[in-house]
Structure formats: C-alpha cells, structure tokens
Design a protein around this nucleic acid. Structure first.
Lengths: 115, 115
DNA sequence: CTCGTATTTAACGAGTGTGTTATTTAACGA
DNA sequence: TCGTTAAATAACACACTCGTTAAATACGAG
C-alpha cells in the first residue's frame, strides 16, 4: 500500500475503467450498480475499482439504505493539475519559440530565425 | 503492453522515481548515469524506468557516442492537463459556492445563504 | 584489436493489481 | 421472519511491475 498521495492518485487514474467511472461521476452521484452498468465486468470488480478510487481520495461514498452513492472529490484532481502545472512553462516556451519561428517565416525568411 | 496513451502516461507517472527523473529533466537533458546518481537503486532499474517513460512518450532519447541523453517531452503532460482540465469546473463551482457562502457570512448571516 | 565506459538485456524472485465465482453482510419490505 | 436487492469480502488464478545480479552490446580511445 503506497502512502504517497500523488502516487496513489496517478495509479488510480492509470485505468480506463476508473477514469470512465470518474467521468460518469462528474455528471452527478451514482450507486455502484449504476456505475457498473456500462461495463462488461463483474460487480465485485467495480467494487474494487471504487475502493481504489476512494483510497486515492478521488471519490467519497455515502450511505442511503442499502445503496452506497459515490461522489467525485476534486482535491486530488487539483493536486494533479498542480503537479503538471509545474511543467507548463516547458511547453509554453516551445510554443513561443514556434510562434517566433512562424513570424520569421511570414517576414519572408523561409529558413526561420538565425541562431 | 497497454496501447491507451493516457493509461500509459498515468501509469508511468504513478512512480516517485520516474516523477523525480522528470523533475530533473525539466532542468535540461541528462544521461542515464547522471539521472541514476541521486537514487540508491541499480542502473538497470533506472534504465527500465526510462524505458517506461519513453514508451509513455514522456521522454525521448538521443545518441551521443555511448551516451543516451534523455530529454523531457511535453506532449503527454499537455494531454494530462487536458484530461484533468475537463474536471476543473467541478472544483471551480465548489469555490464559487464557498465564495458565496463567505460573502453571506460577511453580510451578517452566520448560517450561510438560504436554499 | 583490445580495453574501458555507458547502457541495455536476460533471468529470476517477491510483491501487487485485476479479473473471476461463491459467499457473506446490510438494509428494506411483505 | 422470510425473501429480495445492494454491495462487500473471500479465495483463487494470471499477468504485470520492480528490484536484483550477471552477461551482453555499443562506442571511442589507444
């Protein structure tokens, strides 16, 4: 069991079924059977996926009679955005270079800016 | 071997060693031994981590004599940001609700806004 | 060609993740 | 209480991941 939150979160997101579950939950709360409906895998398998998502802090579960409604939690998604945001300047710099290149070409210099 | 790009990317990011390697590469290119230096694991283990990162499209590798310089690639990081960005409105809505709540409290209504 | 350095591949073991079916627990309702 | 429905857990199989050490490969220098 990994204690690192970011590791648990990325690990939980590294599964198409779990990402699809999150996408469904973005539209609103749902029960386990409702979440399982689109998939061809067994209910226990879905239950385990939900356990992983809950352990990662990506969802939380309430209780309504025998139903356990699942709700998406945004905290860890924000953490992921925060993590990837630290690299944003890398591709923004690349875009700016590309912009400069295209501007140079439009000025009639088809080889791009000189070094 | 999973073909889903997002799955491969999240899976590659679900490891603290690999994230640390990416952090190092954000500062510039590095060779395998340079990347291995901060870690207490063997060089073949690092080599495998780099293979995972490369397969996920998070890095690329050149060749300079017997050195294989690694370079970070931003495409998949942008893909991650794009994916998580689809959920941004969820926590922004929550923030807005919180703002409204705080504004209501400041107006002298300590129970918050009425439904 | 041979040696040294950088890196990868091979082979293996321990641990983990994901699926299954069968069973169990929890809660409602007649 | 009994039966039904919702969900979780148990027990098992299979594959994958991650680490190791030992051997192989790629390249440059002498």
């Amino acid at each position: 069991m990994q204690t690192d939150h970011l590791t648990a979160t990325f690990s939980a997101l590294a599964d198409p079924t779990r990402r699809a579950i999150l996408a469904r939950l973005a539209a609103g709360e749902a029960t386990v059977t409702e979440l399982a409906e689109p998939f061809s895998i067994s209910l226990p398998a879905i239950s385990r996926h939900l356990k992983v998502l809950e352990a990662a802090g990506l969802i939380s579960r309430g209780r309504d009679a025998q139903w356990r409604p699942c709700r998406i939690e945004t905290g860890q998604l924000e953490a992921v955005e925060g993590w990837v945001g630290r690299y944003r300047k890398l591709w923004q710099a690349r875009f700016e270079k590309m912009d400069a290149y295209l501007a140079e070409i439009q000025k009639g210099n088809p080889d791009g800016p000189k070094q």
